[in-house]
């Protein structure tokens, strides 16, 4: 089985003044192509840090991260940016859309950065994707004119527009009501299945696990276990971390 992501014995420490705070401790994880993997854990367990390392927006203090066969620690800043642009799509908890651009322009942004398609091709692809996520009629709207669910749909379209191999979603439903959250997850799952795009998303919401092909449970910066969605749902609750 091909691994799109391999995390090997990774640690990440943050320095808060004189104090060193470990966010991840010796984490190892392989993610196969096409997986719909949930990273579960309570706040502060290291979910976002792990996604940041896999997404090449942060560097590990120790260990190696390999994305699409490239060991990120060996890449320069420019190559890391290129890897993010061509291989990874990001969906953020707060949507992180560019407020001064329209929906269409936000989604078109990564394509413009890639400089691979003509204006006509770009527009066709963007509109098709907006159609797919159900917000084509809002293509000329600004993000501020949309609801939270609609914004997250724009963010999903932006993450997928370059047809990346990997999409990282950090708490994609955290800022949404339960109905909208369910719709977004359904959409992500559908795209995962139709486009065979690998999704890794973080969540501390147990209801979301049911959508995942597997759930990796984190606590105190360490992987507690990796279980199927059914097992995770059956077990219920989040790992509480090591006893003090």
């Amino acid at each position: 089985m091909n691994h799109i992501v391999s995390v090997s014995n990774v640690s990440k420490n943050y320095n808060l003044g004189q104090v060193v705070v470990p966010a991840l401790r010796g984490v190892s994880l392989d993610v196969a192509e096409g997986e719909f993997l949930a990273i579960a854990g309570p706040s502060g367990s290291g979910k976002t840090t792990l996604l940041n390392l896999v997404g090449c927006v942060d560097t590990p203090s120790a260990g190696t991260v390999t994305v699409d066969g490239k060991q990120t620690g060996l890449l320069c800043e420019r190559d890391l940016t290129r890897l993010r642009l061509h291989t990874i799509g990001f969906i953020f908890q707060s949507f992180n859309l560019v407020s001064v651009l329209s929906v269409l322009q936000n989604v078109e942004l990564p394509l413009l950065l890639q400089r691979a398609l003509s204006a006509r091709e770009r527009k066709q692809r963007v509109l098709a994707l907006l159609d797919r996520v159900g917000i084509r009629e809002y293509s000329k709207h600004r993000p501020s004119e949309l609801s939270g669910g609609q914004r997250q749909r724009v963010a999903i379209a932006r993450a997928l527009v370059t047809r990346p191999k990997l999409v990282l979603a950090d708490e994609p439903t955290a800022n949404l009501d339960s109905v909208t959250g369910t719709n977004i997850l359904n959409l992500m799952k559908e795209l995962n299945q139709s486009e065979t795009t690998t999704f890794i998303f973080s969540t501390h919401d147990a209801r979301v696990w049911a959508y995942a092909s597997a759930v990796v449970r984190l606590a105190d910066g360490q992987i507690q276990d990796r279980v199927s969605a059914e097992e995770a749902v059956r077990a219920g609750g989040l790992p509480t971390g090591r006893p003090a």
């Binding site: 997404g55 800043e77 420019r78 990001f90 992180n96 859309l97 890639q114």
Partner: peptide, 16 residues
């Protein structure tokens, strides 16, 4: 700043 971070994350180079 957050917008800059987002643009960098989705693939905008420093020059951009």
């Amino acid at each position: 700043t957050r917008e800059i971070g987002t643009l960098r994350a989705i693939g905008m180079q420093r020059g951009g």
